[in-house]
């Protein structure tokens, strides 16, 4: 293991790795929010990510695509250190959020996760009321000081998630009683309620029907003006529709990344070409 580590560090500065990532520049507000350098992830003895270096722009949607098991979800889980919760997982390399290494000892995972929200593949509302689901983050982090403030926060969050109109009259019914698409928007509202800077989405639409998917995609498009969003998706069409930047992963390596339009119209790597044209995956 140490040998591999030294190896990766030695190669860390090598320009070849950075060259696969073309910056997304569409104005000054899209400065780099997350900067990943030579990220390697091991699950026990198995290496899941190899020397991934990627820049994620602020106030834009970055899509991670690639065949199953290519490491895109693993990369996503590095950003808010959710890999810490998996026994035997080790992460090496640097991931900077606004210039701070998230794996630094001084960074607390609790604070980090309050700053980096996450939405999962399967909607996972807690077995509580809709109100309590959204209020959960505020309660554990002690964000609000009065009941009125909390109610206001829940309302804004639900409005931002585009769910307010549908649930305003039944805030105190269980969140698990909603439809799949509504549940997923509830989970997004729950994540928004703690005012995160980044929202990670791990295939948020794969368990939903096309209509619900369309609503979530609309929502993502609205949210990108305020947040840095990273989305893992299986659907190339979705990546093309919602993202500004796309990164293609294959067998644990970052093959190519760049502005979405370029990746889909003019891929530089033949593997990307094969994948987006449906030859494998």
């Amino acid at each position: 293991m140490p040998a591999q580590r030294d190896d990766s560090q030695a190669r860390g500065t090598a320009p070849v790795h950075i060259s696969v990532d073309r910056a997304y520049t569409d104005g000054p507000q899209h400065e780099v929010k997350i900067r990943a350098r030579d990220v390697n992830v091991f699950y026990g003895d198995k290496q899941a990510l190899f020397d991934v270096s990627l820049d994620v722009p602020e106030k834009a949607v970055t899509a991670l695509i690639g065949p199953s098991g290519c490491g895109k979800s693993t990369f996503l889980r590095c950003i808010n250190r959710m890999n810490d919760t998996i026994p035997g997982a080790t992460v090496r390399g640097r991931i900077e959020l606004d210039g701070e290494d998230v794996n630094d000892k001084a960074i607390d995972p609790v604070i980090l996760r309050a700053r980096v929200g996450m939405v999962f593949q399967k909607p996972n509302p807690f077995p509580k009321t809709i109100f309590e689901n959204v209020a959960y983050g505020a309660r554990i982090h002690g964000l609000t000081s009065s009941k009125a403030e909390l109610e206001a926060l829940v309302e804004t969050s639900l409005k931002k998630a585009g769910l307010w109109g549908e649930v305003a009259d039944r805030l105190h019914q269980p969140g698990t009683g909603l439809s799949g698409g509504q549940q997923q928007r509830l989970v997004i509202a729950r994540a928004i309620a703690v005012s995160p800077e980044v929202i990670l989405m791990d295939e948020p639409c794969s368990a939903l029907d096309p209509i619900a998917t369309a609503r979530i995609e609309e929502l993502i498009d609205e949210l990108r003006h305020q947040y840095c969003i990273v989305i893992v998706t299986h659907s190339m069409a979705q990546a093309a529709r919602v993202s500004q930047k796309t990164a293609f992963f294959h067998l644990g390596k970052l093959v190519e990344a760049g502005p979405t339009g370029e990746i889909f119209t003019n891929p530089r790597d033949s593997r990307t070409q094969d994948y987006i044209t449906g030859r494998f995956g």
Partner: peptide, 15 residues
């Protein structure tokens, strides 16, 4: 209890 609920809570920054 599904792991996804734990993940959801931990990802919110809960201890």
């Amino acid at each position: 209890v599904p792991q996804s609920l734990r993940d959801g809570s931990l990802a919110m920054g809960a201890t």
